[in-house]
Design a protein around this nucleic acid. Structure first.
Lengths: 203, 203, 203, 203
DNA sequence: TATGAATGAGCGTTCATTCAT
DNA sequence: GATGAATGAACGCTCATTCAT
């Protein structure tokens, strides 16, 4: 009984994976449903059995992953560690997300996070939530006296997230080397760059 | 004699301005040539009298503006002022660019700078040039002992540019307030955030 | 099982037949895809399900038919009959082709065989093959002493084919009557005209 | 006074010559008015000062030349020489026409004489006139006992003209060599081929 | 579930022609 | 006469989506 259900779920997953690949390589606009179906090894009609539309696939791709990020940031924010360590964990999480699944992160960044006229608009609340949680980390760090409060927390959050995403963009555009060692150093660099400035200057 | 040439050049400009408006509001993909023509008050055929294709319009829009940025960064890099001031000038220039022409900057950021599968690829070298020049500013600052050299200059440049662009994105997405005062503070915040970390920590 | 495949193949044929009709009546350039679709009773999108482009339809129309002609000439060339009879068979085949499917032959002659700047160029090798085979028939006839060898075989082939095609053109242009009896006499006239000259003059 | 008129006439001629070149190389459909204007070294608007339309140019190109041919055939028909010599003169005239102006003859053959759906239809009467005159030559030859009358004169005319035009087509398609010597032999071959058959067989 | 034939809205682009200067 | 900016009809092609089987 469940073998059929399993087989079905498997196909659904295959379509999702194929979509990641196709959207990463061709972009959402140029990626055809038939490309996805080919890549997944199914008839293109079947895609519509599992998803309502091409957009719905991207929606699911984004939301599923982004929720992980939001959850992770929320949990990290609540931990009892210095703000700087929290940001380091967030940066590392994002870098790792790219490291272990560059195509999906590419799709999320290129097709959603920055697509103000299309999907960004749809997922604005989810995106905002992540920014807000990062700002919350900053705010708590400021309240705890760990971070300077001259800088508005929301600007700081934007800067932190922007710096991180731009490093990923550097890899995506192949403007920056992306060897193992680069993934290892990246998060540290980002935090060092941003937090050095956010951290209280020693006298 | 020149009245006809002037009138022609004027129409060309109108088309360019209409394109900025249309691409900013609808995005490049959804922005129709007929929308541009309507907005410019000309027949759609005229668009093809002045431009080879829809892509060529975006290309020109981007390149013309980006060249200004690159030139500005190059000149700034050569000035005899502290690295931190140089970065402040660059950030301010970008913020001002958005302030005085948000639609064009929106188009550049959303449709080119981050569009790895489409126009970003085409303009990669121009984009890289800007990053390289920023990295050069950082490198000179490090050599002069103004900036810490624990952080690789190219990462720092990426972080700086990313932070700046993300603030613009915040405005574009309407996630951040964009009153006069916000434009005034933004560049200072960005530099304060990023350079605090790059600057030598005081003992 | 095959009912669906059959229905599909049937539609494909309908499109092909509609194309013959449309191209014959309006010409290739003026024949619209939508005309073909209308004529075939399908949506115009379906045409692109079966064919890559408007050109591809004409290509298939031509090649399929022309191959029959080439095969026929080749077989005839190898038969053990007088050269004059071979040419008579070829002329008759061409005349019959027109008789039983004037639209397709019209398309082939008007849009391909004589279209040096467009399709003729594409199908030059196929066209040349037919001429060469006719020349081969002449050459063998000359070698066998059946035909005079004062006339170069390739000129003779060209003249023979040209005379034949021109008769078809006369019908196409409605410059010549095309009743049943005319189809019956045509091939004989052509061969009589051309071969009288090629045949050894009696002393 | 007439210098201005001369200059104007000169431009008109340049446009006509440019049209021959452009239509020969690109075909009528693909040959743009702007190509013609460029080639002639004038603004494309000027073309419409001298001609009503693109079609009108081709019309004039064809009619002017074709009239020469018709006049020549008519005169030849009336001469007091054997029918075979008349046909030889006609064939030679056509071959020479190509020899000394291949582009114009290419345009006439490819774009008019064989274009049943477009210009051929327009110039049908002119075309028919030429065929009729050739048929008249044959008819007189038959009446004079010089040519066999088993073959209907109109078929013979078509065959003769078709054979001749096909040789030109062979040159146009570059299927046949077109050196000086080939032009010298061609007409003789054609007449030898066709008239051998039309001429009374020797006993 | 699964297939792929069928649909049709939608848009970029071309280019002959016009006409103000 | 001459220019070339301006117009707009026209059409090939793409592809997301539907649905009969």
């Amino acid at each position: 009984m469940s073998s059929r259900a399993d087989a079905a779920a498997e196909k659904r997953l295959k379509i999702l994976e194929a979509s990641i690949h196709v959207f990463a390589r061709q972009g959402f606009a140029a990626g055809r449903i038939s490309d996805i179906a080919d890549q997944a090894g199914v008839a293109h009609g079947l895609v519509y059995h599992y998803f309502d539309s091409k957009e719905a696939i991207l929606d699911e791709l984004f939301s599923e992953r982004w929720e992980l990020l939001v959850t992770m940031i929320a949990q990290t924010a609540d931990e009892d560690i210095p703000a700087r360590d929290k940001l380091a964990l967030v940066a590392q999480f994002i870098v790792d997300s790219y490291h272990y699944g560059p195509d999906l992160m590419k799709v999320i960044i290129v097709e959603v996070t920055r697509a103000v006229n299309t999907f960004g608009k749809t997922h604005l609340e989810e995106i905002r939530e992540a920014y807000d949680l990062i700002a919350e980390i900053v705010r708590r760090g400021q309240k705890a006296g760990e971070l300077r409060d001259e800088i508005a927390a929301d600007y700081a959050a934007l800067a932190f997230y922007g710096a991180t995403e731009q490093v990923l963009t550097g890899w995506i555009f192949d403007l920056m080397p992306s060897q193992e060692e680069d993934f290892d150093r990246a998060a540290a660099f980002i935090v060092e760059t941003v937090c050095g400035g956010l951290g209280m200057p020693a006298h």
